[in-house]
């Protein structure tokens, strides 16, 4: 298992009342697979992503991450790590309803997703030494390669590298944000509703990109409401309700589960 989530509980207090958002949640995410997390609005899916990626603290439970490189290493506990540290361990994230950074060019958006932070110290770039320029050139080449691999030779984005993030449509921004995740050395990718608000053609593109992520050795944990998309793509589906994982299985097993049909899919 790449990620083991054990007995996660999170409550929000409002006045004298306390609301349990997650209630002893357990989930295993196997390496190299696509695991889809489904469940109604407010079930706590995004909160779980926030917990894994370090944006939500004050919860109880354990999260073990096995960032197995070439050398086998003991699993790391993520509960007390900052979000930036968790990202550097190899956990990338696509946020719900967020696109590219609007005031940066497409190329800068892509370069920023790289794990290599060389030249980011103030004035390090002042003398434009050969090493830093080479690193910047490498990042540019990598960005172009990724865009070519994902969208084909001579795709329009290669000619728009200097366009600002806000110049792209929302659907394009989602596609390009996913492309940016290839820039970092991520092992686990948390994708929060990648198809929300995206047209059917782009949904197919997103499906291809996610398949290419897995082909590149990455593991994907996905939140999605589009059940056709989940059925086509996911290896494992976890159904979440009342702050817990109620059922786990193959897409067909979950879609045919009577309780999931009644309480989530709205089918008798």
């Amino acid at each position: 298992m790449l990620l083991k989530i054990k007995n996660i509980t999170l409550s929000f207090a409002k006045g004298k009342d306390s609301f349990k958002i997650l209630n002893g949640l357990n989930l295993d995410v196997p390496k190299g697979k696509i695991t889809a997390l489904i469940g109604g609005n407010g079930a706590g899916k995004t909160t779980l992503f926030n917990i894994i990626s370090g944006f939500q603290k004050d919860f109880s439970g354990e999260i073990s991450y096995c960032h197995c490189g070439l050398d086998p290493q003991p699993p790391l506990r993520l509960e007390n790590l900052r979000a930036d540290k968790i990202s550097r361990l190899g956990i990338g994230r696509l946020f719900q309803s967020k696109g590219l950074l609007p005031h940066l060019t497409l190329l800068d958006n892509m370069k920023l997703c790289s794990n290599d932070t060389s030249g980011e110290f103030p004035f390090a770039y002042l003398f434009r030494n050969k090493k830093l320029l080479a690193i910047e050139n490498e990042k540019e080449m990598k960005a172009k390669n990724i865009l070519t691999q994902l969208f084909g030779e001579n795709n329009k984005y290669l000619g728009m590298l200097n366009a600002m993030g806000c110049d792209f449509s929302y659907g394009e921004q989602r596609l390009l944000s996913l492309a940016g995740l290839f820039m970092g050395n991520y092992d686990l990718l948390l994708l929060d509703e990648p198809t929300a608000g995206v047209n059917p053609v782009y949904i197919e593109n997103i499906k291809d990109i996610i398949r290419k992520m897995v082909a590149a050795g990455k593991t994907v944990l996905l939140i999605e409401h589009n059940m056709l998309f989940v059925k086509d793509l996911a290896d494992i589906v976890a159904y979440m309700d009342d702050g817990q994982i109620k059922f786990t299985g193959t897409p067909n097993e979950i879609i045919n589960n009577q309780e999931v049909k009644n309480s989530y899919l709205g089918i008798e």
Binding site: D84, K85, S87, G92, F95, K98, P102, H103, N115, G184
Partner: peptide, 12 residues
């Protein structure tokens, strides 16, 4: 533009 995104790509 977006501090959360910056955190999520490993910068503090």
């Amino acid at each position: 533009s977006d501090e959360l995104t910056v955190l999520s790509i490993g910068r503090n």
